[in-house]
């Protein structure tokens, strides 16, 4: 995000803090897909992911005065969304891959076009196949670091883990997924 965009965002957030709903609509439209992406990859359910998006922005709206302007907004947003996802996962059953999930993964792996957008049902199937044997923390770190491509320092701020914990969880998650893919026949 360049400097001009940062200044614009800062001004919009100040208006939101003063109760400007029109300015907050801009925030929702700009960041709702990002939160949906995290929630879908964590929960593997579209409706649950939309609920998390709604709940996240309600929490943001209610706690805007606690937002520190010097801190990146996206990090703060991810933190709220992550905590809501972890709370929701506690109440959900453990992820169990379905029969159709493997065929979707093969279909994805065999497709040659790299720029093809992954559909939402493909995402659900792939994550259920690859993350079934990961712990919650490992799934979270793998999702934030690898799938969302956040930096290590950002992940530390969002999760509250230190650098060593992030690195360790990420390594274990990658190793587990590789073993899973190899077991499925992918070398």
């Amino acid at each position: 995000m360049n400097k001009r965009t940062q200044q614009l965002e800062s001004e919009i957030l100040k208006r939101c803090q003063r109760g400007d709903k029109a300015a907050f609509r801009w925030v929702v439209q700009s960041y709702q897909r990002l939160v949906f992406s995290l929630a879908l990859k964590m929960l593997c359910d579209e409706e649950e992911a939309k609920d998390i998006v709604q709940e996240t922005f309600i929490r943001v709206w209610q706690n805007l005065e606690s937002y520190e302007p010097g801190r990146p907004f996206i990090t703060w947003l991810y933190t709220i969304a992550t905590r809501l996802c972890l709370d929701r996962l506690k109440g959900m059953k453990q992820l169990v891959p379905l029969a159709e999930d493997e065929s979707m993964l093969r279909q994805f792996a065999s497709s040659s076009s790299e720029g093809r957008a992954i559909e939402n049902r493909e995402w659900v199937a792939i994550v259920r196949m690859l993350a079934a044997e990961l712990s919650t923390k490992q799934r979270l770190v793998f999702t934030l670091c690898h799938l969302e491509e956040l930096s290590s320092s950002e992940v530390e701020q969002i999760t509250g883990m230190d650098a060593k914990q992030v690195k360790s969880n990420l390594y274990v998650a990658r190793q587990t997924i590789r073993k899973r893919l190899i077991a499925l026949g992918y070398e």
Binding site: R25, V28, Q29, L34, S37, Q54, F57, N120, L147, I177
Partner: peptide
């Protein structure tokens, strides 16, 4: 496969409806 999964974000089928729901 892991590289192809990087950086891709799922698409919201009806983003306006979700925005209005949130607002």
């Amino acid at each position: 496969i892991l590289e192809r999964l990087k950086g891709q974000q799922p698409v919201i089928d009806d983003p306006e409806e979700l925005t209005e729901r949130i607002m």
